[in-house]
Amino acid sequence: MRYVVGAVADLPPGSSTVVYPDKVKSGIGVFNVGGQFYALKNTCPHMGGPLCKGRVRGTTEADATDEERVGMHWVREGEIIACPWHHWEFDIRTGRTLFASRQRVRSYPVTIEPLEVLERLKKGVETIPVSVEGATVVLDI
């Protein structure tokens, strides 16, 4: 089913929101990373924490270019979500952990629909926030 999140204008780059469709009671986080939208289940695969309520940030990367010593850089600002419970980090774009692991957050397709599509959706979708006008963020659940 399709679920209308809200107006694109209300979710500028760097912002995120959590919506609660009936089908996914724990919620789904919707993120605008540099103009691209991504959606992750609001459940951390570690202990079930409300992942998408965590902090959107960058992360560290090792710098081993000098073999005499190791250094680190701050990279990927705005591309990582850290769970508020235990700070596990996930790539917002993929739902994957930052190093090899079988654990992964479920992700959902997000589309941006123009006004005319929204009108057609109105019949089928679960909810349409009254404020939505213009381009709209829509989830496929």
Binding site: T60, H87, E89, F99, S101
Partner: peptide, 15 residues
Amino acid sequence: KDWQSDRIEVPWMTK
């Protein structure tokens, strides 16, 4: 146990 949380401080650890 806390490795995924602490990794950010020591990113050279890959395992």
